[in-house]
Amino acid sequence: MIIVKDLHKTFEDNHVLQGVNYHIHPGEKIVVVGPSGSGKSTFLRCLNLLEMPTSGEIWFDGQLITDPKVDIDKVRRHMGMVFQNFNLFNNHTIMDNITLAPVKLKLMSREEACENALKLLDRVGLKEKADAYPSQLSGGQKQRIAIVRSLAMSPKVMLFDEPTSALDPEMVGEVLEVMKELAETGMTMVVVTHEMGFAREVGTKVLFMDDGNIMEENTPQEFFNNPKSPRLQDFLSKVL
């Protein structure tokens, strides 16, 4: 579904991604872990071109999206993204947050979009917050809304950029719960996170990134029980 070939990204003098290659298949739940500064967030943000790669190719659904002629806005409709800081639109109600994109992009009528939004809100247990503003919600609620907002576009893949890192500990669970349910529906997911429990339980593959490259890739069981590289062993000893 997503093929990454020799992906490089440089910020000024900082070579953040140094030739990443990877192939994500439909239905996979890829969990990306690694120390901070390892390039894992940049890797994720390159997948929907929020960061423009310096060089390399990214194919999505058989289309080379790094080609300058591609209308990236159309591609992004099919790639949902959830941010560390939720990034709900502060000037809109929850309902408008969810329906804004589908309606403005003329994918649905307002009625359809609202109906769909209510259904999704019900799924995450926040139906009664439809008319609230983001500032009235807790962090956990905001992140659940952010997930719903992405789902409202019926994406083919969901990207999560450290979705629980900005949350108070007692709210982490509710967000992970929603993500688990989403995984069970068969959604293709790429998740950058520090939640090793989530990686073990939900991931189909776990990637360890360090120094701008994928150092190790394995099934969760092998990854956690039988780490091969000393760096991963060291990393795991610190986070587990």
């Binding site: 929907n48 929020l50 159309k74 992004r76 409709r77 993204m81 990034n87 709900l88 994109a101 992405s150």
Partner: peptide
């Protein structure tokens, strides 16, 4: 305005 607002909008496919 927080850069995240723009990123969220763009990630949804808005121009």
């Amino acid at each position: 305005v927080d850069k995240g607002q723009t990123e969220a909008g763009r990630s949804l496919g808005l121009s």
